[in-house]
Amino acid sequence: MSKINILGVDFDNKSFKQFQNEFIGRINMHQSTFTVTANPEIVMAANENPEFMKILNYDADYITPDGIGIVKAAQMLGTPLQERVTGYDLFTWLMRVASERNLRVYLIGAKPQVIHAVQEKVAREYSGIQLVGAKDGYFNEDLEIVAYQIERTEPDLVFAALGSPKQEQLLALLRKNLLPALMMGVGGSFDVFAGAVKRAPLFWQNAHLEWFYRLITNPTRWKRMLVLPKFVVNVREAKKEKK
Rank of each mutant, 00 (worst) to 15 (best):
Q169G: 02
L171H: 04
F193H: 14
N177I: 03
I6K: 05
N28H: 12
E154H: 15
E154M: 14
I216T: 11
G137N: 00
K17N: 07
E210H: 14
K243Q: 03
K121L: 00
N28Y: 09
M184P: 08
A45V: 08
R26T: 08
I4F: 01
E241K: 03
M29A: 15
L170H: 03
F23G: 06
V192H: 08
R26I: 02
G188T: 03
E100V: 05
V97Q: 06
Q167N: 04
L215T: 05
G128K: 02
N218A: 13
Q31P: 07
A181N: 09
Q31F: 03
L171P: 07
V43Y: 09
Q31R: 06
V114N: 02
G8W: 05
P219A: 14
H116V: 13
Q20E: 14
E151H: 05
I42D: 05
K243T: 09
H208K: 13
H30M: 10
S2H: 11
G25C: 12
I42Q: 12
M183G: 06
T64L: 08
N21V: 07
Q119G: 10
E210Y: 12
G25M: 11
R152L: 11
F193L: 07
A38D: 03
R96E: 03
V186Q: 01
F91S: 06
R214P: 15
G25H: 09
H116Q: 08
D89S: 10
Q18M: 13
L173F: 11
P50F: 04
Q149I: 13
L77Y: 09
V132H: 00
L171T: 00
Y126D: 08
F19W: 01
A110W: 10
G133Y: 11
E151D: 04
G87L: 01
H208Y: 13
R214S: 13
V71H: 05
F91Q: 05
E125H: 06
N234H: 11
E144Q: 15
W222R: 01
T64E: 06
E83Q: 09
L90P: 04
M29E: 15
G8Q: 04
M183H: 08
Q149F: 10
N21Q: 13
